[in-house]
Design a protein around this nucleic acid. Structure first.
Lengths: 151, 151
DNA sequence: AGATTAGCGTGCGCGGGGCACGCTTTCCCT
DNA sequence: AGGGAAAGCGTGCCCCGCGCACGCTAATCT
């Protein structure tokens, strides 16, 4: 009871997750970005932007979805030209999912939207505090309860 | 370009949300807690613990769910004795959803689990850093892009 | 070479979510 | 005071997303 820091963070973290789902963050950020992109399909775009071309199975493991779910969501994105399927030159069975230029643009715009949201809400902060927060948040993610590689 | 703090936080935040869904945090935290409680029904428990007894419509607004969805999830929780329905003494139409003692226990256990997770992962941190992080995180939530009351 | 493994897409069944309906109670306005 | 709108509830219905199982092809192992 001398240290309630853990509870404090837990509470704040719960609040954060709750708010992000309550306000449907992804849905808001991807609103009106184009045909086929919504809160369901965006994780594929974001994942591919981070990792580069990937097979459906690998991408599924990356973002925590079933392989078949990835396939179906990728269908929509392919249909609207945000993603392409290329046969893997190194493996005749595999099909690589890769962003098109339009797909990259969508990701960039979305990220910029979120960054702008954050910038404006941090406007009143002392810059040093903001930087400290960014640093600690990053460290918390690297070492926190969401370990980078649990499997 | 002089200040990339916004992007840094945006990136970290994206990572956090991604990881929390990827690892299915709620599912993990509520695992084996008892019949009827899972990642779908837990938000009701958590919400009621925060607000006290509420009508289905109000609880829905609180946690961002449709009224009927709340009703159905509440059915399961009621069936396993974690939640009770009481007629609202102040309004003959309304039915108040309220946690039972067992329901409160579930919430307490879950919160303690998360706090413990966080404590252990913060074990290597200088206590001052941890406290600073808690403080800034809290401030960020209060003023951040997830405004307390958007509606 | 034959067998096993890993990749893909698709058909199918299940389960959750939202809309619309019917009902009761409250509220408001004349 | 009384009657119509509004707000609450539960449920039937339909749609959609998801995961499993299947059949297929290609790679890998013995």
């Amino acid at each position: 009871m001398t240290d309630t820091t853990g509870q404090d963070i837990a509470e704040a973290l719960g609040l954060l997750l709750r708010r992000s789902t309550r306000t449907n963050l992804h849905a808001r950020l991807t609103e009106g970005l184009g045909e086929g992109v919504d809160d369901l399909t965006y994780p594929l775009l974001s994942g591919l932007a981070r990792t580069g071309p990937l097979s459906a199975a690998d991408l599924g493991r990356e973002i925590g979805l079933d392989r078949t779910t990835v396939t179906r969501r990728a269908d929509r994105l392919e249909r609207t030209g945000l993603l392409e399927r290329h046969p893997d030159p190194a493996d005749g069975r595999a099909t690589l999912l890769a962003l098109t230029d339009d797909g990259h643009d969508i990701v960039a715009v979305t990220r910029r939207r979120l960054a702008a949201d954050i910038e404006t809400s941090l406007a009143g902060w002392p810059p040093a505090d903001a930087r400290t927060f960014a640093r600690l948040l990053r460290r918390f993610l690297d070492e926190g309860p969401f370990a980078p590689d649990r499997d």
